[in-house]
Structure formats: structure tokens, C-alpha cells
């Protein structure tokens, strides 16, 4: 399924050769406080890895994804709210970085169309079934 994405990532490896530094401290290390870690985890699952394009940063072994995890975990540890961190990233990379679209000028149809579908579904059921046999 996500094989394709994964292949793309693998294909990209020869270009971006191995960097020489070890992973950032919190790239592969969980926060000590389980509640904070759960917060960080939930947020990271909805942030897009920028170098692999179709994985969340949790799922990616790309160095930059590791650095992003480090950034998220250190900010959460410093007491920042997950949504503030998301907003900070969206400010820098645009809506693309977040898998959780927010209602905005760019994304309103994503929310308006399901509402329309709901109304339409209600209408069909009501019209089709309102009449007695």
C-alpha cells in the first residue's frame, strides 16, 4: 500500500547520502512523562515528513523527520500546546505539513461538501422512505 511511498524514499537515499551526525536526542527517544509523550505522539502522527512526502514523521527514518520529532518533543516537554506547535509549523510550511486540515479559505470545501452530503443523504432517505408502501 504505502510501498510506493516507501520505494520513493529508498530511491531518494542515494541522492541524500548518509549524514554524519547521530540522530537528534529526541528523534528516537520518548519523553519521560507518558502523558506528554502521548501528546507528542498524537501530534507527530499528523505531521507530514517533508523529505519522504507521504509518511508522517513518526513513520519515517529520514534524518529531517527525526529532527522534527526532536523539535516537537522538546517543545511539548517545555509545556507548549500541540496545536500551537502545529500552527508554528503551518506558518512556516503552509497547510501541506499538517495532515489535519483546518477550516480556512483554502480548505472550506473539505468541510462544506460533507455537510451537503449529509443533507442530501437525509433528503434521499426522507423522500424515499417518507412515502408509505
Amino acid at each position: 500500500m504505502r510501498l510506493i511511498a516507501f520505494l520513493a524514499l529508498l530511491l531518494a537515499v542515494p541522492l541524500a547520502a548518509q549524514d554524519s551526525l547521530p540522530p537528534a536526542p529526541y528523534a528516537y527517544q520518548q519523553l519521560a512523562d507518558p502523558q506528554q509523550e502521548a501528546q507528542a505522539q498524537a501530534l507527530m502522527q499528523t505531521l507530514r515528513c517533508l523529505t519522504c512526502q507521504s509518511q508522517s514523521i513518526v513513520d519515517s527514518d529520514a534524518p529531517m523527520a527525526g529532527d522534527m520529532r526532536h523539535e516537537v518533543r522538546t517543545r511539548i516537554a517545555a509545556g507548549e500546546q500541540p496545536e500551537a506547535i502545529r500552527a508554528w509549523l503551518v506558518e512556516r510550511y503552509g497547510d501541506y505539513i499538517s495532515y489535519a486540515p483546518q477550516v480556512s479559505a483554502a480548505t472550506w470545501p473539505l468541510f462544506a461538501i460533507p455537510v451537503l452530503l449529509l443533507l442530501l443523504a437525509g433528503l434521499i432517505v426522507w423522500r424515499r422512505l417518507g412515502k408509505r408502501a
Binding site: 537528534a24 529531517m64 529532527d67 510550511y93
Partner: peptide, 10 residues
Amino acid sequence: DVSKVQLALG
């Protein structure tokens, strides 16, 4: 070292 400024720059 941990891409901090890179992330800040977008």
C-alpha cells in the same frame, strides 16, 4: 545540528 533553524525557516 538538529535542523532547528532549517525548520524555523520553512
